[in-house]
Nucleic acid binder design. Structure first.
Length: 573
RNA sequence: CGGGGCGUGGCGCAGUCUGGUAGCGCACUACAAUGGGGUUGUAGGGGUCGAAGGUUCGAAUCCUUUCGCCCCGACCA
């Protein structure tokens, strides 16, 4: 591609709206332009990257024998009524009407449509298992779109759905898809990790997420340094800590703590060691619980895991924290002064809290804390559970190694749906036994447009994007120096360009007659992995200059046989 | 939805407090010089200051309403 025939939309300045690196760089390199909140145009440059990601995804899915199709983006409300999701999906569902006033939505996902298709077309177990997929624009009316295409409202997604006669078949395809996903993300050239995930409201027994690792990622993942264990932090179980309850060493005493309303203030103002403090969190109780509220205890330096808390039978799900007023009327003290001693509410303690001794907690009286609290002696040992987020250094739940934490960007998610949708929509087939069987389903998503942003988030520097080769918009940039004046430079560049094209190289030939600095900056901003410079200087020595996006120094390639030398560099990556 | 901020040429901004008829940098056009890391000069084009209403002799500026966008939070099969 010649630059003169390919519009670049690079900018020197960053639009004020861009907060994170990938968004800034996508705007500056001219890959995307915003139309309105959460909705973007992909420019020719941006689309090249998107298409490369798409091609990898498609290729691996096709190889696995899954069938590409294309379903409608606009879907009738009746279908969504069948699964109850017209209401349940909430504000994220973009609802629209046609001229007759009939309700439709712009598809945020396609379980309903694909299940409808399958229940109409698939009659027999002999046609199973089958997996359909599509790569299509989705729309989810996010409460707060942000970070450019990272969390856009309109985005490109690969969604796949598998159908099975039974659970075993679904399980088999699920793990097959897990491998396919691993191959896909490996091929993109990105550093990624698959983790156990919460299957959430969609239900189902198995779920994994695939994360591109990046320090700016919004998700935290925990993994063992010695085994394959890896999990989304919200799901990572904390092993029961070893050890026994120590004998009390201190006396229980009340301390006036007028300036301590948080753990930090308790530590800094009153000399409490943070690992000797406990946080008392009041949440709404489950309907069947006799009390209105439940107290949850975690160590002062730990973070309550809301997902784990909501799973407790005593606790309302989803988790709801009690308001300050609720707490005051139930306990008679404010949130900064709560503790287990003398508390007349059901209490659940994190398993680690049960092993604490001589600890500090609120006295359920404003501006007072107990110091030197010990279980049994001062207050009954409560029920215990795993309530906190894992932290780096925790024992791995599988008993092998210790946990480490990393940040990730979720780019893929696979689920075993089971019969949730097929039952609601009466999607059945005849089995070998001559009877109707409700279909088992799996669903599998990849955020294609998000991968592009995640790739940049993982691979960039102060100059711009550093594309992994497999998804770079161009493999190689060819830059002639001062070609306007130098006919031999131009001639050499033209010739090499022709040879590269002939050899099938995805080359970007900057024939814009710009000053070198401008070209260098553009090419580095766009992040093309390889660069060849042709100038008078080099021609005098029979050489070309070569460097990779990551290099800090140029190297030389012979002008004679340049094509072969370049191809070798491209091969080597 | 709650809290905060911003809307002035394509982009980044000043001007708003204290009303006087719109400015800077980048980008763009033409010409010239320059030519290995965002080059310089000269001359240009482009904005009903988000929108509507009001106050005033006069509104980017003051008042009211409204729309959009961004950030934090809640939310995120």
């Amino acid at each position: 591609m010649k630059a003169s025939a390919f519009h670049l939309f690079t900018t020197r300045e960053t639009p004020a709206e861009a907060e994170i690196a990938s968004h800034r760089l996508m705007l500056r390199s001219g890959m995307i332009r915003k139309l309105t909140s959460g909705i973007y145009t992909w420019t020719p440059m941006g689309l090249r990257v998107l298409r490369k990601v798409e091609a990898i995804v498609r290729d691996e899915l096709d190889k696995a024998g899954y069938l590409e199709m294309l379903m409608p983006a606009v879907q009738p409300a009746e279908l969504w009524d069948e699964t109850g999701r017209w209401e349940k999906f909430g504000g994220q569902l973009l609802k629209i009407q046609d001229r007759a006033g009939r309700d439709y939505c712009f598809g945020p996902t396609h379980e309903e449509v694909v299940t409808d298709f399958v229940r109409n077309e698939i009659r027999s177990y002999k046609q199973l298992p089958v997996t359909f997929y599509q790569i299509q624009t989705k729309f989810r009316d996010e409460i707060r779109p942000r970070f450019g295409v990272m969390r856009a409202r309109e985005f490109l997604m690969k969604d796949a759905y598998s159908f099975h006669i039974d659970h075993a078949s679904m399980d088999e395809t699920y793990w097959e898809m897990y491998e396919v996903y691993s191959r896909i993300f490996t091929r993109t050239g990105l550093r990624f990790r698959s983790v156990e995930a919460d299957s959430g409201a969609i239900g189902g027994s198995q779920s994994h997420e695939f994360h591109v690792l990046a320090d700016s990622g919004e998700d935290l993942i925990a993994f063992s340094d010695q085994s394959d264990y890896a999990s989304n932090l919200e799901l990572a179980t904390v092993a029961k800590p070893p050890g026994n309850l120590a004998a009390p060493a201190e006396k229980l005493r009340v301390v006036d703590t007028p300036d301590a309303h948080t753990i930090d203030e308790l530590v800094s103002g009153y000399g409490a060691a943070i690992e000797k403090t406990i946080k008392t969190l009041i949440v709404h109780a489950a309907g069947e619980c006799e009390a209105d509220f439940v107290a949850l205890l975690v160590r002062g330096d730990r973070v309550l895991n809301e997902l784990k808390a909501a799973r407790l039978e005593q606790v309302a799900s989803p988790l709801r924290f009690a308001s300050d007023e609720d707490i005051r009327s139930a306990i008679g003290a404010g949130p900064g002064s709560l503790g287990p001693v003398g508390l007349e509410l059901p209490v659940v303690a994190d398993q680690e809290v049960a092993l604490m001794s001589d600890f500090v907690a609120g006295a359920n009286s404003d501006n007072k804390h107990y110091f030197g609290i010990n279980w049994s002696r001062d207050v009954d040992l409560p029920v215990t559970a795993d309530l906190r987020n894992a932290v780096a250094g925790d024992l791995s739940p599988d008993g092998q190694g210790n946990l480490q934490l990393a940040r990730g960007i979720e780019v893929g998610h696979i689920f075993q749906l089971g019969t949730a949708y097929s039952e609601a929509m009466n999607a059945v087939v005849l089995g070998e036994d001559g009877k109707s069987h409700v279909l088992h389903m799996g669903c599998y998503g990849i955020g294609v447009s998000r991968i592009v942003a995640a790739a940049i988030e993982q691979n960039h520097d102060e100059r711009g994007i550093i594309w992994p080769e497999p998804i770079a918009p161009f493999q190689l940039a060819l830059l002639p120096m001062n070609a306007k004046k130098s006919h031999r430079v131009r001639a050499a560049a033209d010739q090499l360009y022709a040879e590269l094209l002939e050899a099938g190289v995805d080359v970007f030939y900057d024939d814009r007659n710009l000053r070198p600095g401008v070209m260098f900056n553009d090419i580095e901003l766009i992040g093309i992995p390889h660069r060849v410079v042709i100038g008078e200087r080099g021609l005098d020595n029979g050489a070309l200059e070569y460097r990779q996006r990551n290099d800090t120094e140029n190297s030389e390639l012979p002008l004679e046989g340049a094509l072969a030398a370049i191809l070798e560099k491209l091969q080597a990556g």
